[in-house]
């Protein structure tokens, strides 16, 4: 099933795995409530433009996380006086973030070790 793809995806920007995007969203929301556009901007900025969130998959991810109960949302007004849907971490989401961060670190450390040693 072909997915609609954003028109510009630079070759050196890696595609984000689904689980990774979830982790990044959770981590980004640790700083406080944020709306979708801000989340994608923030990930891009913090990663020094290495990670571009494919916006097409951002919203499905947000809705999935919301369904799992890790984040919740409410309508509010943005810094530019625009109505937007703000997402924030739930208690369950915080626990999940800790767990997933640990898993990620273990995994990336292991991958790095393999890359260096092997």
């Amino acid at each position: 099933m072909p997915k609609p793809t954003p028109a510009q995806t630079a070759k050196d920007q890696p595609d984000l795995l689904q689980g990774t995007l979830d982790l990044l969203i959770l981590r980004t929301l640790q700083a406080g409530a944020m709306h979708g556009w801000a989340i994608s901007r923030r990930i891009q900025q913090v990663s020094d433009d290495v990670l571009t969130v494919q916006q097409g998959s951002l919203y499905p991810s947000l809705h999935r996380l919301a369904r799992k109960g890790w984040i919740d949302s409410e309508w509010s007004v943005s810094e530019n006086n625009r109505r937007a849907k703000f997402y924030h971490l739930t208690e369950q989401g915080r626990r999940q973030l800790v767990e997933e961060t640990e898993t990620w670190e273990r995994l990336s450390a292991a991958v790095s070790r393999v890359l260096q040693e092997a």
């Binding site: 510009q8 494919q54 916006q55 097409g56 998959s57 919203y59 499905p60 809705h63 919301a66 369904r67």
Partner: peptide, 19 residues
């Protein structure tokens, strides 16, 4: 619009996650 991609597709995927 290009950056966001096909809106219908996104909606479909979101609806998927609603169960």
């Amino acid at each position: 619009r290009l950056a966001l991609g096909g809106i219908e597709g996104i909606k479909e995927e979101c609806r998927d996650s609603w169960g």
